[in-house]
């Protein structure tokens, strides 16, 4: 493996890992703060990708589609939390699993009714559709670098939100003692709604920006969901920092696995998870 090839795989692995982080961070926040296991999280990724495709073909611009799509998915998140998720806070995880599993079926069939079952490509915006040459015959697409950059910015934004703002303080407090926070006069319900909508929008956003690379196809959310579960298990529940570390770890492991040992590439992440479970059953990080 020469250096340019290695560099390409490294960048691909990081980009994939950062994308996973966007989905997994919402998942881990919803687990950690609201105590909700959300199987439908992968569906939001799928909804995002389909929104990007349909809105981009309507407006002719991926940027406009993403902007519009984010607004729509935030509204979707607020509506879902209001209508359904809210009723699950006091309930056993079992019912959370069941209800959100039902949601997956609903989303998947709605997708089939509204958008059909075909695979669609989404063009990379013309402005970003070139590559940076690395050697004579190897080059790296700019769009992938842009995705990584945007994901990094969002990760930084999320860190600042949680660590440095008043809202972040309420979120942290809410995750450690819900009742105490409420009795101090903070509207924890509103915070839960915000967190859920944020998680939905982040997952959908990941689906949107990745649509030009992955294309758009039925059941695309399932694979992402399960990988993100592995991320959360490795990183530690409710830990955004853990989600970042684990996402990058898995992104790199899977990318290099596919190049070096393609026969067992599908299993690598699960073996990694098993190893972490033996070593630290609670995950690598335990704090928000």
């Amino acid at each position: 493996m020469d250096f340019a090839f290695f560099l390409i795989q490294l960048l691909n692995g990081l980009q994939y890992g950062l994308l996973l982080f966007l989905v997994a961070s919402g998942l881990t926040l919803i687990f950690g703060i609201m105590g909700i296991i959300n199987l439908a999280h992968g569906s939001f990724y799928m909804v995002g990708a389909y929104l990007a495709w349909s809105l981009a073909s309507m407006t002719g611009s991926l940027a406009a589609a993403i902007l519009l799509g984010v607004v729509l998915t935030v509204l979707l998140g607020v509506a879902l939390e209001w209508l359904l998720i809210r009723r699950l806070y006091e309930r056993d995880h079992l019912y959370q699993v069941l209800l959100t599993y039902g949601l997956i079926l609903v989303f998947e069939e709605m997708r089939s009714i509204l958008w059909g079952d075909d695979v669609h490509g989404v063009p990379v915006p013309a402005l970003l559709a070139h590559s940076i040459p690395l050697t004579e015959n190897l080059s790296y697409p700019v769009y992938r670098l842009v995705i990584s950059g945007v994901c990094l910015l969002l990760a930084l934004g999320m860190y600042l939100l949680i660590a440095r703002t008043r809202l972040g303080m309420m979120i942290r407090a809410g995750s450690s003692n819900r009742d105490m926070v409420q009795s101090l006069g903070i509207n924890i319900r509103l915070i839960y709604t915000l967190i859920f909508a944020l998680g939905v929008a982040l997952a959908a956003f990941a689906g949107m920006i990745n649509a030009p690379l992955s294309s758009v196809f039925p059941n695309m959310g399932g694979g992402v969901l399960i990988i993100c579960f592995v991320v959360v298990v490795i990183g530690g529940i409710g830990s955004v920092k853990g989600a970042l570390v684990a996402s990058l770890l898995i992104g790199l492991a899977e990318t290099f696995g596919q190049v070096l040992v393609p026969e067992v590439a599908g299993m690598i992440v699960y073996l990694l998870m098993a190893a972490v479970l033996v070593w630290r059953p609670e995950g690598l990080f335990r704090k928000l």
Binding site: H93, V97, I226, V230, M267, Y270, A274
Partner: peptide, 22 residues
Amino acid sequence: LRTRGIFFIMVTLAFAQMLFFV
């Protein structure tokens, strides 16, 4: 069984998925 609660749900799913890929 080293895990519990939400973890248990996710890990059982992940191991089943591992077998799926096998």
